[in-house]
Amino acid sequence: MSYNNILSEENNGITTITINRPKKLNALNKETISELHEAFREADLDKNVKVIIVTGSGEKAFVAGADISEFANYNIEEGKMLAAKGQELLFNFIENLSTPVIAAINGFALGGGLELAMACHFRAASDNAKMGLPEVSLGVIPGYGGTQRLPQLIGKGKAMELIMTAGMIDANKALNDGLVNHVTTLEELLPLCEKIAGKISRNSSVAISAAIRAINANFKDGINGFDTEIQEFGNCFGSEDFAEGTTAFLEKRKANFPGE
């Protein structure tokens, strides 16, 4: 499928989705959010795809924020709808995707860009990356899950300070705070993410999907994560991947998981 604002390419079981609006520093507008939803949906439905990497085009920005010109004149109800639809269509959608998603943060990840990265299952950053949620400097707050996911990742106090000051942190600070898992050079960012994706791809996609659901359950209101873990653990016993994995272990060979 062709897109106006993104590129999507699959290679050896890894789909790389690139936000391709370099003149706008890859800012998120409605069309880009819709295209990202479709690209993630297609990759998730493809059984050959084991991992998804999302990044930005160029060397300056992952995503520099939302396209403010689209909503500068919105009223209260329109603002609520913007946040609700965006969260449903993209940010919550990515978080709950059954295929692992790695954010390769190659520069500025601000506002909606950082919220996109935080919705991914984990993150790696180039050493030139800058991250922040500057929305209060515009008289608004993060609306795509930023007030919820940032405290989960770095703690309430640090998140409060970063949001209230509308400040930015560099890649090493983000690493120390637990916002990203890895920091490397810009040239090595995608190769690093691809290396990690390769390690993930060798494991059971059924079990990985179950692990995503179990981990996410701990952060959902009214859901007991331990109960979800028990349920998902039990479900694994009915999968072909479990049969292959245990048989391969007993036969002292590498497993060839069918993904079912």
Rank of each mutant, 00 (worst) to 15 (best):
F122Y: 15
L138N: 12
A84E: 15
N12H: 14
A61W: 01
G112R: 02
K173Q: 15
I215N: 09
E95F: 07
L110S: 00
A39V: 03
T99I: 14
K30T: 13
A72N: 06
M81E: 15
G157K: 15
A129P: 01
L192G: 07
M118F: 05
E31G: 06
E59K: 15
I33P: 01
E35W: 01
N12G: 07
Q148I: 14
N203E: 13
T165D: 10
N218W: 09
E187D: 12
N20K: 07
N75F: 09
A171H: 02
P142D: 01
V206T: 06
N216K: 09
L7D: 08
N73I: 09
K199Y: 15
L192S: 07
L162H: 04
F233E: 08
A166D: 02
L138K: 11
I94P: 01
L110Y: 01
F93E: 11
E251Q: 12
N11A: 11
L179K: 03
K158G: 01
T247N: 09
Q148R: 14
E240M: 11
P151G: 03
G79S: 13
I163D: 03
Q152I: 08
Y3K: 05
R123D: 08
M1T: 09
A211S: 12
K24H: 10
N4Q: 13
G225R: 02
N48R: 13
L7F: 10
F249I: 10
G234T: 09
L97C: 15
K85N: 13
I141Q: 11
E31D: 15
V180Y: 01
A61R: 00
G13A: 10
E70W: 02
N172K: 15
L192P: 06
N26W: 00
D67V: 11
N128Y: 06
H37L: 06
I19C: 02
S209G: 14
S98N: 13
E70F: 05
N4S: 14
R253P: 03
S57D: 03
A27M: 14
G146Q: 02
L186Q: 02
Q152T: 08
G167S: 10
M168S: 06
N96T: 12
L25H: 02
N73A: 14
E135P: 03
H182A: 10
M168F: 07
D67Y: 12
T16S: 10
E135S: 10
V54S: 03
G139C: 10
S209F: 04
H121V: 08
I19T: 05
N218H: 13
F122N: 09
A66M: 12
T15Y: 07
Q231A: 13
V63G: 01
V183A: 04
